[in-house]
Computed example of a mutant assay.
Amino acid sequence: MIRFLLRFVGMWLLAGGFVALVLDGVRSIASSSLVMTPLGVTWLATSETSLARAEDLVSSNLPAGTWETVMVPLLQAPLFAVLGVLGLLLILIGRPKRR
């Protein structure tokens, strides 16, 4: 049951990454330059309060400087790449056992 759930969520994340890639492609064609939407911009537009809560959580529970060294580069990464990698990882974790 857990494996199915991991694969299911992984497929949805992979699909979301594909949608983000298509949207970035359309924006790139329309502007005649490469456009990649960062994860942080999308998260900020979706839920500003949860981003602030995540920063507080990371800053209070993890060693000093973790937000700047780990989370800031992750938030600057393209949304399609983050969703794609996370989706692939969940699919690989949830794959059936080999016999």
Rank of each mutant, 00 (worst) to 15 (best):
M11K: 07
F80K: 01
L39F: 14
L79V: 06
A77L: 12
R7M: 13
I93C: 10
N61R: 14
L39H: 07
W43S: 06
F18V: 09
A30L: 15
L39D: 07
S59A: 14
Q76R: 15
S50I: 13
V41F: 11
L90Q: 07
G84C: 06
S32G: 04
G17M: 04
G10T: 04
F8M: 09
M71C: 13
G94N: 00
L86T: 15
F8W: 09
R99D: 11
R7P: 03
V58K: 04
L90K: 03
L6P: 08
L5D: 00
V82S: 11
I91G: 07
P38Q: 08
E68C: 02
F8K: 10
V82C: 00
V82M: 11
A54D: 10
L13F: 15
G10F: 05
G84F: 05
L39Y: 03
P78Y: 08
V85K: 05
E68W: 01
E55C: 04
M1A: 13
S33A: 12
A52C: 05
L75N: 01
M36G: 03
V85F: 13
A52L: 14
L90V: 02
D56W: 12
L57D: 08
A64T: 13
N61F: 10
P38S: 03
D24T: 04
L79F: 04
G10N: 02
P38R: 01
V70S: 07
T46A: 14
G84A: 02
A81M: 14
D56T: 14
M71G: 06
L74E: 01
L89V: 15
R7Y: 01
R7T: 08
L21E: 04
P73Q: 12
R7Q: 12
V70K: 06
G94I: 05
L79C: 08
L89N: 08
I93V: 15
V72T: 14
G16Y: 00
L23Q: 02
P73C: 06
P63M: 01
W43C: 09
